[in-house]
């Protein structure tokens, strides 16, 4: 079985994100970029499945500009076998991304596509579901535990009420949740080895034939309003008085 892992280059989780002064987007110049943390978990899971002897190849794919090669190289250093960069200079919305990925899926015919439940930049949580629909295959989303059998898998999903376990026929799309695994560290010798692994670049247009662009227009980005500073009260009486004044008690 081949596993296709879709990853995205995003502003590092620990960076304090700043909106550009003209409101046209989020500042990324000189900002640390990393693999979307949920996608990193997806890479790790694919590698574990392969290491358990249940897959023969792990292919990692991303859509982005040339710099996204860096994140592909990281995934290769973690242990993926080869990488595909679908190159574009523009930001994609979910449907376009899913359509583009579908093209790669049809070419590669993987037994499983696995990716993060959402990317921490847009937090859309749409691409895996859209891809499964376009591909007309089952999906298991928000997965925190995965068990592969011959042509099915058992997926434990994190849902609002708790945990839900479903059985899904392969090929299928999996989206990962935070507790699925703890991604491994990248070893320096593996970074060297990763340089020799194949990385194919295809232009996005080649993957989007017939796609009709009906994207949303983003009008403006702005910083959320700053929260008011808390105040310290000296006594319970003062607290009660303040709550009353605000009509809360």
């Amino acid at each position: 079985m081949k596993i296709l892992v879709a990853i995205k280059r995003v502003v590092d989780f620990n960076v304090r994100v700043q909106v550009k002064p003209d409101g046209s987007g989020v500042a990324t110049d000189g900002v640390k970029m990393s693999i979307n943390p949920f996608d990193e978990i997806a890479v790790e899971e694919a590698l574990r499945i392969k290491e358990a002897g249940k897959a023969d190849e792990v292919i990692v794919v991303t859509i982005g500009n040339n710099s996204a090669q860096q994140q592909l190289r990281t995934a290769l250093a973690m242990g993926a076998d080869r990488a595909i960069l679908i190159e574009t200079e523009s930001e994609l919305q979910s449907l376009k991304a899913a359509t583009s990925l579908l093209n790669v899926v049809e070419k590669e015919q993987p037994g499983m596509v696995i990716m993060g439940k959402q990317a921490i930049d847009g937090d859309n949580n749409q691409t895996p579901q859209m891809l499964a629909t376009l591909w007309k295959r089952p999906q298991a989303t928000f997965v925190s535990k995965l068990e592969i059998n011959d042509d099915t898998l058992l997926a434990t999903r994190e849902v609002d009420e708790g945990l839900e376990t479903i059985e899904v026929r392969l090929p299928a799309v999996i989206s990962t949740d935070l507790r699925l695994n703890e991604p491994r560290f990248v070893k320096l010798p593996d970074i060297m080895k990763a340089k020799r692994k194949p990385l194919d670049i295809i232009a996005i247009d080649e993957t989007l034939s017939g796609f009709e662009d009906k994207e949303l227009t983003i009008q403006k980005y702005e910083t959320p309003q700053a929260r008011q500073k808390g105040i310290m009260v000296e006594s319970v009486d003062e607290l009660v008085a303040l709550l009353k004044e605000k009509g809360l008690a």
Binding site: D12, K32, P189
Partner: peptide, 26 residues
């Protein structure tokens, strides 16, 4: 530069293994 340091250290046997952070969290 990191790779050079690492390779040099591996050659002399001083460095046995190494990992490098891929995100701020790591």
């Amino acid at each position: 530069a990191v790779m050079q340091v690492f390779e040099q250290g591996m050659e002399t046997g001083d460095i046995l293994d190494g990992v490098i952070s891929q995100s701020l969290e790591q």
